[in-house]
Design a protein around this nucleic acid. Structure first.
Lengths: 214, 214
DNA sequence: ATAAAAGCATACATGCATGAATGTAAATTG
DNA sequence: CAATTTACATTCATGCATGTATGCTTTTAT
């Protein structure tokens, strides 16, 4: 009773990913031994080494499964951005927070990424992908802000680069801190007011960074 | 030529802390071997085990050395908060960002804490101290926001709890992301406009979280 | 000056996680 | 229905980081 059918093998792979996410969250990625992941998934280390090369590749697979919906969101948002760019940004950010508030797996993933993981050389591919994703997201949001300036939704002298950095930092910080204490406040309910507060700041007093002389 | 005088021993301890900060940043805390730290400091592991119980205690010492100035700032700020609470909050946040932008050691520390460390059980004392510090900081800022509402600096219906969470998230996010790419923009120059943007949002459209029915 | 303790260096024993090697039985393929 | 591959389980050898124990030399206290 060793060999499984193809779909059973896929199920094994999925349960390995789920188990890894859990154990990563409990023990931290670096301190996690693959035997723990295997035990949690109800298999042995042999199964892990069959499906993945090593722990880094397993972690990479866990991350990619988690960031897939976000990327789909970004791609989808590039469509209907023409008429109301600010609303598009707002929707984008809102859906990210809503996804975090609602999905337990998403919470686990960000908990791992933010607090239970060391981004060192051995996870270089994950870091590289993170960097690429962030860069793509940032440039897309900045383009939306540029459009918002062109539409008159934002002041003409808005530094859209800084505005983008600020919004991204806001989002990262909200997720980073909220996953530490999901019970501290109702993120799903508070996401809108929190976002609108920052967007209002952008509209009334946008960041303007004069290229300082000296 | 083994035994050192007392101040030489203190110097050894300091160089151990500095070396640990560097190696932690390069290799990550979990992957750092104490022999690396010792070698970087020009001693052997014996010196580490003399000054510290284990890696966790070493990391704790590194963290405490880094958070000391921040705590001093907070204590100092509780003094002159009466007449202009909003300006006090602004000053507080500004000094934190300025400190980060200017001090290389502070950058290293936050890089380690944000990206090169797993907060698991073995670092429980550090986590506990972090939690306590954050709670103290948040409650103090919220008190300032409450005063700001009383002064009329912020709208009467402002949810000061959410406003505090938002500002804290903003700060965390700014630091979290900026240490990843200190060259991406001039934090020292942009700290003011970035902060004022969020504070303007607080003044014009403060977060108000209605206790949602259903 | 002598005893005691400080401040490390060195040597040793231990466990433990890894990765590779091998075994194996069922499931495909032709 | 044979041959081959899949999908793991099991075993093994290895290295490596840790913690402890011990040794050694110089301060420091008295």
């Amino acid at each position: 009773m060793v060999k499984k059918t193809r779909e059973e093998a896929l199920a094994t792979r999925q349960s390995l990913l789920a188990a890894a996410l859990q154990v990563f969250r409990e023990r931290g990625v670096a301190h996690t031994r693959l035997s723990d992941v295997a035990e949690r998934a109800g298999v042995t280390r042999g199964a892990i080494y069959w499906h993945f090369k090593d722990k880094a590749e397993l972690f990479q697979a866990v991350c990619e499964r988690g960031t897939m919906p976000v990327e789909a969101l970004l791609a989808e948002a590039s469509q209907n951005a023409l008429q109301d760019p600010l609303a598009t940004v707002r929707q984008l950010a809102l859906m990210a927070l809503t996804q975090l508030a609602g999905h337990a797996d998403t919470q686990a993933m960000f908990d791992v990424i933010f607090h239970k993981c060391e981004f060192t050389e051995e996870l270089a591919p994950v870091v590289a992908k993170n960097d690429a994703d962030r860069a793509a997201c940032l440039s897309q949001v900045q383009r939306l802000f540029d459009q918002a300036v062109a539409c008159g939704q934002l002041p003409a002298d808005t530094d859209t680069f800084l505005a983008t950095q600020g919004l991204h930092a806001y989002m990262v910080g909200l997720m980073h801190e909220w996953v530490l204490n999901p019970g501290s406040y109702d993120l799903a309910a508070c996401a809108k007011p929190l976002l609108d507060c920052y967007l209002a700041g952008l509209a009334t007093r946008p960041p303007i960074c004069r290229p300082d002389a000296g």
